[in-house]
Simulated assay, not measured.
Amino acid sequence: MNDVWQILIGIAVGLLVCWLILLAALAFARPKGNLLTEAVRLLPDLLRLVSRLARDHTLPRRTRWLLWVLAGYLALPIDLVPDFIPVLGYADDAIAVALVLRAVIRRSGTDALTRHWPGTADGLNIVRRLAGLPATTPQK
C-alpha cells in the first residue's frame, strides 16, 4: 500500500511541477506593458476572430488546425489559471490567443487578420501590436 501512495504523490508532484513550468512559460511569453490588459478587454472580439479565421478555407490547413486547438483550449472549463481569479484568470487565455495569432499571421499574412476582425479599428491596432506587428494609422 505504501508503494501506491508514493506513486500517487509522485504523480501529483510531477503535475504540479509541469503546471508551474507552464505558468512560467506564459509569464515569459506575455505581452509587455498594458497590452495584456487591453487584450483581456478585447477577448470577446478575439474569440470571434479566432472562430472566423478557423473557418476560412483560404488559410493553410495547418494554420486552421492550430486555431481549432486554440478554440478548444479556450472552451475548456479548466485553465492554467482559473477564470474566477480577477484579471489573471483571463490572462492565460489572452496570452494563448496572442501566441497563436503571431503564428497565424506569420503563416497567412496580415490580410486575413484585417478581413476577419469583428471589432473597431482601435481594437485592430491593439491586436496588431499583440501579434508583434506595428499599429496601422487610422484612415480618414
Score class of each variant (00 low, 15 high):
123 G>S: 09
47 L>W: 05
72 G>V: 02
16 L>P: 00
140 K>F: 12
133 L>K: 05
58 T>C: 07
13 V>D: 01
133 L>Y: 05
93 D>P: 01
54 A>Y: 09
56 D>Q: 11
134 P>V: 02
75 A>T: 10
84 F>S: 06
52 R>T: 01
12 A>P: 14
61 R>Q: 14
102 R>T: 02
106 R>G: 15
121 A>C: 05
10 G>P: 03
93 D>W: 01
50 V>C: 13
115 R>Q: 11
5 W>A: 05
92 D>N: 11
9 I>C: 07
70 L>I: 13
130 L>M: 13
70 L>N: 07
126 I>V: 12
63 T>V: 15
98 A>P: 05
88 L>A: 14
107 R>Y: 07
43 L>D: 02
121 A>E: 13
37 T>R: 14
81 V>P: 01
110 T>Q: 15
80 L>T: 08
13 V>C: 10
85 I>H: 07
25 A>V: 14
139 Q>H: 15
68 W>H: 13
112 A>C: 15
75 A>R: 11
123 G>H: 10
36 L>W: 04
18 C>F: 15
21 I>M: 09
35 L>R: 12
138 P>R: 12
9 I>P: 01
117 W>G: 01
105 I>L: 07
78 I>S: 02
34 N>V: 11
71 A>Y: 11
63 T>G: 06
27 A>V: 01
41 R>N: 04
103 A>E: 02
23 L>M: 12
34 N>Q: 10
96 A>T: 03
70 L>T: 07
36 L>I: 08
96 A>M: 09
8 L>F: 11
65 W>C: 02
32 K>A: 09
49 L>T: 12
107 R>C: 09
85 I>T: 04
77 P>E: 02
41 R>T: 06
71 A>I: 05
6 Q>H: 06
83 D>G: 09
101 L>V: 10
28 F>S: 06
68 W>Q: 10
11 I>W: 07
104 V>E: 00
30 R>L: 08
4 V>K: 06
5 W>Q: 03
65 W>R: 15
58 T>K: 10
106 R>I: 03
27 A>G: 13
35 L>H: 06
92 D>R: 02
82 P>L: 01
93 D>K: 12
87 V>L: 14
53 L>Q: 02
96 A>P: 01
59 L>K: 08
127 V>Y: 07
48 R>D: 11
96 A>Q: 04
128 R>E: 04
122 D>I: 08
54 A>R: 12
41 R>K: 06
31 P>Y: 02
121 A>P: 03
55 R>S: 14
14 G>K: 08
131 A>S: 10
83 D>R: 13
78 I>T: 15
26 L>T: 00
52 R>Q: 06
